[in-house]
Design a protein around this nucleic acid. Sequence first.
RNA 1: GGGCGGUUAGCUCAGAGGUAAGAGCGCCGGUUUUACACACCGGAGGUCACAAGUUCGAUCCUUGUACCGCCCACCA
Length: 971
Amino acid sequence: MTQPSADLPKTYDPQEVETRWYTFWEAQGFFLPNLAEQAPPFAIMIPPPNVTGTLHMGHAFQDTLMDVLTRYHRMRGAKTLWQPGSDHAGIATQMVVERQLEQEGSSRHDLGRAEFINRVWQWKETSGNVIGTQLRRLGASCDWSRERFTMDEGLSRAVTQVFVRLFNEDLIYRGQRLVNWDPVLHTAISDLEVESEEEDGHLWHFRYPLADGSDHLTVATTRPETMLGDQAVAVHPEDERYTHLVGKQVHLPLAERPIPVVADDHVDPEFGSGCVKITPAHDFNDYQMGQRHDLTLLNIFTEDARINHNAPAAYQGLDRFKARERVVAEMDAAGLLASVEDHRLMVPRGDRTGTVIEPFLTDQWFVQVGPLARPAIEAVERGDIRFVPDNWAKTYYEWMYNLEDWCISRQIWWGHRVPVWYCAECDGDHLTLHGLGNLGEGGTPNQLAAHGVALVEAINQAEHIHVGSNATPIVPGTEDERPQRCPNCGSDKLIQDPDVLDTWFSSALWPFSTLGWPEDTEELRTFYPTTVLVTGFDIIFFWVARMIMMGCKFMNNVPFEEVYVHGLVRDSEGNKMSKSKGNVLDPLDLIDGIDLESLVEKRTSALMQPDKAKAVETMTRKEFPEGIPAFGADALRFTFASLATMGRDIKFDLGRIEGYRNFSTKLWNAARFNFMHVSQPPEAPAGRTWPDRWIVSRLQRTEAEVADAMAAYRFNDAGHAVYDFIWHAYCDWYLELAKPALQGDDPQAAEGTRFTMIRVLEAGLRLLHPFMPFVTEEIWQRAAPLAGCEGATIMRQPYPAADEALIDAEAEADYAWLEAFVGALRSIRGEMNINPYQAIPVLVRGGDERDRQRIANHRPFIDALARPERIDWLGQDAEAPQAAAELVGELQILVPLEGLIDLEAELQRLDKELEKVAGDLAGSRKKLGNPDFTDKAPAEVVAREREKLAEFEERYNQLRGQRDRLSGLQE
RNA sequence: GGGCGGUUAGCUCAGAGGUAAGAGCGCCGGUUUUACACACCGGAGGUCACAAGUUCGAUCCUUGUACCGCCCACCA
């Protein structure tokens, strides 16, 4: 068993403590749920980070919230699973490894498919999943024994199952469609992976001559190069300028072929000339119009967006942007360029490569989402899934009602390969094998056979296989991994579809695939549906919606009951953090610290535009002149929890984390104080003093507050309640109130105080543990035995729950009185600049019997906290000396001025106070003078207002009298 | 074009139809007291973006305006 050091240093050193405890927890298996336990389940699936990724602030934020929830529910007795894992991140990972190969002067094509995939696995084993280590540093209490990877055998089987079942239900189909094509990656991507930004461009106006040479039409385009694929010119059917031309032909320049003029509602007569060129194979709108008018789909691009053989010879092989220049130049030369104007337009770019995406005509696999969407929408409507905050449900509906079919095939190598085969014999003409190495150039199976090439060998060697639209898919039977023979001809020469599935296809299954589906496992029965999903709004469409669809489809139940949607972590200026902007903070640097030079180096090395390095450096040096100190994981976690307010982005500033680092130190020192006074378990006292009863009462209130806040995912409120309790109630007041007894000469009183002091500390540690797991464990290990607790770890102790019976109104009233009394004296001291250690004589007057008793009973506390020299009662009519005065209820507290206080200063102070009370008084009178208020407002509100008025009046008169006496004496 | 969110103390943010709007940081003044200067004590600081409406009462509800931000959408 790990033990905290016997002599606690003055300041808490998180680094050593944190790693020590994490190792212990993990080794002891404290993170694993006990399936045999009779307890309600609580499960959270981690949104699987990319295996290529490192922990950024967004992760750290999100994972902190998940861990707070996990630890909280675990301590509350739930059978708790936080399921960790990572995502194979097809495109991202493939890019990482390809970049490596590039540095070695190689490429994936040099390696071939099988070898390349090998290489990726190798990379994954050695350097993948850095995040796992980082999560541990953060304190994440995931069940690492159940860690999953989306390409694990089990998860891959789930992918195949899902694909085959959807395919057999016609919910997955293959089709030739216009898709978003990334010419750098040579793959299709989904709509969601395209990010459109407004950019500066031009609008070119071209003249297309009529075929009969009589006139011309002017069309406007932002993409001149696509004209090589134009199939028509469209005008609005009611546009009188052009109706007579509909049905005629224009001559398409450069391509030198005739195309028709068609009429279509979609054309906006107000825009440009009111004529639109139609390129059905290269624009989504034009594709639609092409369908309506039965136009040919003429593709003029290659896979890397060069001009292909369908265009005039002079253009073939040209890059799209070069082709654009050339088209413009030639049109201009031919006198057909009418004008050019500047134009802002939305440019679609790939979210990974940043390259301009092309609408491109290819064969792809799609999920028909309509039938899947309906139950998923209903699940949220019915309340089976609740979004927190609930406005996100609207965003969800909005998207779900407008779903387009989901393109799930990707032309990359790293990922789950589409579980579809084709028969080389039956489909001998529809399959083309490319890059066969020494077997030759390639060709269809039939052609290869004609040349005497062994098909199986060719299949194995093919670097790329093209599957024609008419090929017949063969999918595995439900239990099989792959079909052995063609069901049609019995041939075993089957060729697998070359595409892999969108990464999100497998992540959509995460909530059940990680629990063992399609097997009916105990974990699945126990933890599905999971309790809550914690995620950012940015992946509601990518991931959340798809999990709901898949869960409803394959589990007949929602994947989670609640979705907590958090905001984005931004820098202190409110900018999105990004490496290319050089404004990122690494959560690990906040935990362990980093010196300025390293920080500057780190931030300037990953810039997109290297010329910004100077600015980034200046900014960094200004913001972090001393670098970043090691705040510790606890401080970082508490900061995130405190900033986690509903549906709002958070700006991360160092002041906040510094404050919470201080909080951990504060707690540390409160513990040191305890250990100074408590060395063995104190005896339970026969009766408790009022400060003891008060702090216990206050603890119950805090516990209730935390429970309410946690139930509503109000992490900030929960954190604040604990903070306020520990710092302001326990440290500032309770420990100060404990000192007289601890240092006094009544051993029984001291023992009773020790008893309460250590037990409240212990409860406070448990209360705080989900937020600050490390420092609480470190202290708890030592405090627990003294507080009569047993156990190997705080993280498996029961979470403190409020006990109504321990709420003590009387003790709370005593405390409130004392706080006011002491506060009054401190305020006089503070404002009159009296040294805190100079004893001051105090006179009291007025008040009631209760006040008398309290002054007598609480005298030791008053002495300790306010240091009066003596307290004397003054008769109601007795002449008071010149004095500074405060009021506690009706009790007047006077501090004689003589030798202590400046009369002028006290008069000013009184005037200020009088002014304030006069304002309150007037407000209250006005309110009560309004018959509408007294008649219509609820009786209790009116009654409370009357009480208030009486108080104000009393207070005002007292202050007035004091002021008059003082100024009278002055004259 | 549609939708969503924001505007409260110098800064970062909480907040509820009804006392006198809060916290942390920062600021000002005081204190090295035997847990803690990463501390303690006292204090200053807000027309709750603007306008109208509902109400006995609005900073909170409604509508509108302004500014900021985000998401979605096919105007070439």
